[in-house]
């Protein structure tokens, strides 16, 4: 079965979506990612969707869900490289994805994740909290 690869880089997991997302693929990704987060004890997830040109409300909601699940598993999620057309579509669909962090490209996304992680390491009390307060 078709799968989206999940790469590990230190404490982070990186997912680049390079094919058209259909619903089954999205659900598989959701399954794989949550099990990888708990298996690798990752602290951050970066989802790059710069190659994604078509989204629907389901994919939009799935992004929000993944980010929510990752947060419960104590990992921050950053979505990077969203195309203008995709952003406009999501806004028109009424999906403003309020809980998700976004960045313009992968580099900035990694900066954001490192910064978020650095904050948390500086403040060890927060490590015990399941859903850390948003920066």
């Amino acid at each position: 079965m078709e799968r989206i690869p999940i790469l590990q880089m230190g404490q982070f997991l990186i997912v680049t979506i390079q094919v058209d997302m259909h619903d089954r693929l999205a659900l598989t990704l959701q399954d794989d990612l949550t099990s990888r987060i708990s298996a690798t004890n990752a602290k951050g997830v970066l989802i790059d969707i710069s190659a994604l040109e078509i989204v629907d409300s389901f994919i939009g909601r799935m992004l929000a869900n993944i980010s929510g699940m990752a947060r419960i598993l104590d990992a921050q999620t950053v979505v990077t490289g969203m195309q203008p057309a995709v952003a406009i579509t999501l806004v028109e669909l009424g999906l403003s994805l309020p809980g998700i962090k976004t960045a313009l490209n992968v580099e900035r996304g990694m900066q954001l994740l490192r910064a978020a992680l650095g904050d948390r390491q500086a403040d060890p009390e927060q490590d015990d909290v399941d859903a850390p307060v948003e920066a």
């Binding site: 979505v79 969203m82 406009i88 976004t102 313009l104 900035r108």
Partner: peptide
Amino acid sequence: LKTVTAARLMGT
């Protein structure tokens, strides 16, 4: 607000 949200989704 729509414009602001769309820009935020792109990370700006």
